[in-house]
Simulated assay, not measured.
Amino acid sequence: MDRIAIIGCGGSGKSTVARKLARILDVPLVHLDAIYYDEHWTPLPRDEFAAQQERLVSGERWIIEGNYASSLPIRLAAADTVIFLDLPAAACLWGIVQRRWRYRGGQHQANGVYDRITWNFVRYILGYRHTMRPRVRSLLRDHGPHVQLITLTSRRHANRFLDRV
C-alpha cells in the first residue's frame, strides 16, 4: 500500500482512518477538504481542484482522503489501494455529532477536519447509500479495476483493519 485513496460518506471516519494509517505507514497524508475549501468556505474552481489532484497523485507514496466523485477517477487511476468506508447512515450521523462535540464547529485545517453541518449535508448522509454508493461503485469498476479494494462497514471493522496493518 503506497498510494491509498480513502473514500466514504461524511462522518464515516475517513479522516481518522487516514491519520492513523498515515502514521502507521509513514506516508504523506492529504485531506481533500483542505485543498477544496479556503478559510471562508469558498470552493476551488473545478479545473484547479483537478490539477491539484493530478500533482498529488504523481507522488511516489500518498494517502488522499476525501470523496469528490467528480474527480475520483484521477485518484483511482494512480492508486494501488482504495479504502471504502461504507458505514450505515446512523453511524455517519453519529460521527458528525461526535465531530461537532470534539471540534466545536468550524474548520480545522491542521488535521483536515471540516465541521460544517447543514441540512443538505444531513440529507446527503441519509441518502448516501442510495445515491452516492452506486456511483462510487461504478467509478471503482470503470476506473479502478487494478486497485486493491478494502471495504470497511463499521468502526469496529476499521479499527481491526488498522490493528492488522
Rank of each mutant, 00 (worst) to 15 (best):
D2C: 07
R3H: 06
R3D: 14
I4L: 04
I4C: 09
G10N: 06
G11Q: 11
S12Y: 05
G13D: 02
K14H: 00
A18H: 01
R19Q: 06
L21C: 05
A22L: 04
L25Y: 10
D26F: 03
V27T: 15
V27Q: 11
V27S: 15
L29V: 15
L29M: 12
V30H: 10
V30M: 08
A34S: 15
A34Q: 12
I35P: 04
I35V: 14
I35T: 10
I35F: 15
Y36S: 06
Y37G: 04
Y37L: 08
H40N: 04
T42I: 03
L44F: 09
P45C: 07
P45M: 04
P45Q: 09
P45I: 05
R46L: 11
A51Q: 07
A51S: 11
Q52P: 03
Q52V: 01
R55L: 15
R55K: 15
V57N: 10
S58A: 08
E60F: 02
I63M: 04
I63R: 06
I63H: 01
I63Q: 07
I63L: 11
G66C: 01
N67L: 08
Y68G: 04
Y68W: 09
S71M: 13
L76P: 02
A77S: 01
A77P: 01
A77W: 02
A77H: 07
A78N: 07
D80H: 13
I83V: 14
I83G: 01
L85S: 06
L85K: 04
D86S: 11
P88M: 14
P88Y: 13
A89M: 14
A90Q: 12
C92T: 07
W94F: 11
I96N: 10
W101T: 09
W101A: 12
R102D: 00
R102L: 00
G105S: 02
G106V: 07
Q107P: 03
H108N: 08
Q109A: 12
N111A: 02
G112R: 03
V113K: 08
Y114P: 01
Y114M: 11
D115C: 13
D115W: 02
D115E: 15
I117T: 06
W119M: 14
W119P: 10
Y124C: 05
G127N: 14
Y128M: 12
H130Q: 14
R135N: 11
R135K: 15
R137K: 13
